[in-house]
Amino acid sequence: MKIRIKFTKTGHMRFIGHLDILRYFQKLMRRAEVDIKYSEGFSPHPVMSFAQPLGLGDTSEGEYVDIEVQSTESSAAMLRRLNEKSCPEIRMLKYVQIADETRRSNAMSNVAAADYQILFRKEAPDESALQAMLAQETLVVKRKTKTKEMETDIRPMILSWELGEEGLFVRLATGSTANCKPDTLIEAYDHFRGVTPPPCACHFHRLEMYACREGLFVPLYQLGEELL
């Protein structure tokens, strides 16, 4: 039986890297006595699949991990058990059963987009610059890979944006086919303005991750069903 868990990573937990979060969940599953499926062999570990790693320093209220269990209680009971054994800054929000389709249906390969709230901590954002930048048809950024520098047009990956009092809200293409991280967007914005920002000028907070179903963006947990 496949289960998808939506969780938060807030506060000081933003300093815990992705691999450490993986280890954290391995231990959490044991503490909460989740009847999870383990890998075979002499070093068994719970089989888990995380969607789209969060950058170190970023927070989120829309993280996902898929697990496989042999048995389970109701969603409400499992959320209670997991949260009891978790630290206050990692909270489980959803525990839903997802279809057992193929191996490819895990949280990682489902993701098509993510919403972010970008908080400007050092100075107010320049709305007209943002507008001018995003009014362009293309927005080419240089990305470094291990061996070479590549140019990518991220404009089509910026699916929507809105500047509010609580920062810049963006929906970005995320996943294996097209992927734009919020810091890439901000780097482009700084480059566009010709500004070198101080360190930690922006805080990135992920709000939700989506799959694409028939042209619509559906939050990942909505692909599953509550267990009653």
Binding site: F15, I16, D20, G57, P198, P199, C200, H203
Partner: peptide, 12 residues
């Protein structure tokens, strides 16, 4: 501060 923690190895 965040600035310091983000500038050092393994802030955890």
């Amino acid at each position: 501060s965040d600035e310091i923690l983000m500038s050092v190895e393994k802030p955890a």
